[in-house]
Nucleic acid binder design. Structure first.
Lengths: 351, 351
DNA sequence: CTCTGGCACTCTCACACCCCGAGTGCCAAG
DNA sequence: CTTGGCACTCGGGGTGTGAGAGTGCCAGAG
């Protein structure tokens, strides 16, 4: 899968060909290319070069008398080595940061806005994963009695995120009992990362066992229960699916159906985004490169976004493989940065 | 827009024609119809009747030498007067009630499951609105201090629903102050419908003013604030959108695009569902009857669902106008009933 | 060795054409 | 009122053809 190395002329021609194909959507022939390149080569010469490129698997012609079209490897080489990014218009940046600022009240809305921005500005489908919460720190825990033997546990996170869980417990607790539990636990657990809380709890259990402090044990079991129940929030926000309907590149109806099924499942796409961990900046899956069938003929452009220096989620777009990477890549990149900034207000914690 | 009355023979033929068209998807000719009907009439006779039906606007032929196809009015008459429902297979009912029982832990999940059931069983797109909460009664109110001048208000509803709002307040309150507010207000407001709470609060304000009870006034203002902030939950759950991709009836790509845009907007569809209030049972919008353009060529089959005797939401499906109404209608109906039942466990309130 | 013009070849696309089958409308007779 | 007959219409599918675009290859020039 390693990319071949090309001489300068071949590079130039490949670049011109891909750019032309991206903007026109029609196979590119030797004559067209000879006009569009400063080398001033005759079509015949260009044909020779193209034959080489075809042999290398970078381009391919749909049929004998059509021009050439980039293959996936052609796109790959183009993106890795030949692509010159286009500067974003500052107005676009303003739009994104403006919208994000406006939505900065709630995390959920921030994520949704980012997704919408991506889809509006690219005219493709925007994706944003919810930020992973595992590094969030607990601020406090409260328990409130509900009817019968049900208890409402409220976990307040450092960043203002609030989670509710309804627990079923062995016996009814009074309001004041529960308040005590909460105070006790908040004191011990505040400032801990949620992912570590369980360990702490288990350790605590041991010391408590010797003390035979029944109250404390109950409280721990309640918290334990509350942490186990995973909240059922949607973990991927998708916007602008309809933008992909009717694109000439995805004209095959069966393929489109599979694509939309993938959007509904979410799981596989989420998995794909999670896999792109290694990259620090923008990462791109071209066509079937992801190994995920429904994305055939599509490309995925993603970038991680950060909160307090840590990567907490990914965002990106799905569009046809034939897209203006030179514009989309900077856009995804900047959106990731701006979302990160919006999640980390410099002045104060989120709430 | 009133429907014409037909003699028995015409009714019979129209019914046969619509049924045939629904199951085959091909315009129905006079010969086909003469074989499929017990009257044993010659094609020529049937042609005469069909000419009448066409004149009445109930059927129409796509072109000279094609058979006939029902018009919207034809479908309407068919559904209102001629349709004989098909009994659901009991296995389907079992599936629905089984899945709903399994999801009965959380309201959100119940709604999503219902939507999925609708889409799976019809192979079309399922819709369920979230239950309106306006008749929910408050059980209790709690306030928890966050950092600085932020306060977390927690509203616990009678049915176990919990809502959080983060409030920004003028000054910082201590934990115990807030607990007092909560206790005070819970006492006064518990058992009231959320929609009426504001009135009560305003009234309370007056009495309090004379008492000059500052604490209480603060508490009221907090609650007021908490109630005003609307929670931003998605209010319509859509499942199985991809089922509509590739149906021959919606082959027009531009139309499909508009349909999917409608799914993304949600708002208009939600509005449409809300409009179907008057109906007690299943209601049907055929094609453009809804007055909503993107649903051209589609039909909407909806039914209200109830909680404690009150209609709190709507569910239904969107599919091609050419659908098996005799199966879909009972299915939507029973799903609404079962969802209602799942929301109203006989033994105890939801939590 | 590289580049170029020329030439024969291939393939798609659009258009025209035609025929077949299905279904109709109408009429006249039962 | 029903029916058989008949002429008519229309869309779909298959075929044919010509134009256009582009290629591959070859031979000659630099």
């Amino acid at each position: 899968m390693s990319l071949p190395t090309l001489n300068e002329r071949a590079q130039h021609l490949l670049k011109a060909l891909v750019e032309r194909y991206i903007s026109e959507g029609v196979p590119v022939g030797s004559r067209t290319l000879s006009q569009a390149t400063p080398f001033s080569l005759s079509p015949a010469t260009i044909r020779n070069v193209m034959a080489d490129l075809e042999e290398l698997g970078l381009i391919h012609s749909p049929h004998t008398s059509a021009g050439r079209v980039p293959t996936i490897q052609g796109y790959r080489l183009f993106i890795n080595q030949l692509l010159t990014m286009r500067n974003l218009e500052s107005s676009q940046v303003d739009v994104i940061s403006g919208e994000l600022r406006q939505a900065s009240g709630s995390r959920q809305q921030l994520i949704e806005t980012a997704s919408q921005m991506l889809s509006h500005l690219t005219r493709f489908t925007g994706l944003v994963t919810l930020p992973r919460r595992e590094h969030a720190r607990l601020r406090q825990i409260e328990f409130i009695p509900l009817s019968g033997s049900r208890v409402l546990a409220i976990l307040v996170m450092d960043d203002g995120e609030v989670q509710n869980r309804v627990l079923t417990v062995a016996r009814a607790y009074s309001h004041s009992e529960l308040r005590q539990f909460g105070a006790l636990l908040s004191e011990r657990l505040a400032g801990q990362e949620a992912s570590r809380v369980r360990e702490t709890l288990l350790a605590e259990m041991d010391t408590v066992r010797s003390d035979l402090n029944a109250l404390m044990r109950e409280a721990i079991m309640l918290t334990e229960q509350a942490l186990v129940e995973a909240p059922a929030v949607p973990d991927l926000v998708i916007s602008g699916q309809s933008n992909l309907v009717g694109l000439q590149d995805i004209s095959n109806i069966a393929r489109m159906k599979r694509l939309f099924e993938a959007f509904e499942t979410k799981r596989d796409i989420l998995h794909l985004l999670d896999q792109s961990q290694r990259a620090d900046g923008v990462q791109i899956f071209i066509g079937g490169e992801s190994g995920y069938d429904p994305l055939e003929e599509c490309s995925l452009v993603t970038a991680p976004y950060r909160e307090q220096g840590r990567v907490v989620g990914y965002l990106g777009i799905i569009g046809p493989t034939r897209m203006h990477y030179d514009q989309v890549i900077p856009l995804v990149d900047i959106t990731a940065r701006l979302l990160g900034a919006a999640l980390n207000p410099a002045d104060e914690p989120q709430y």
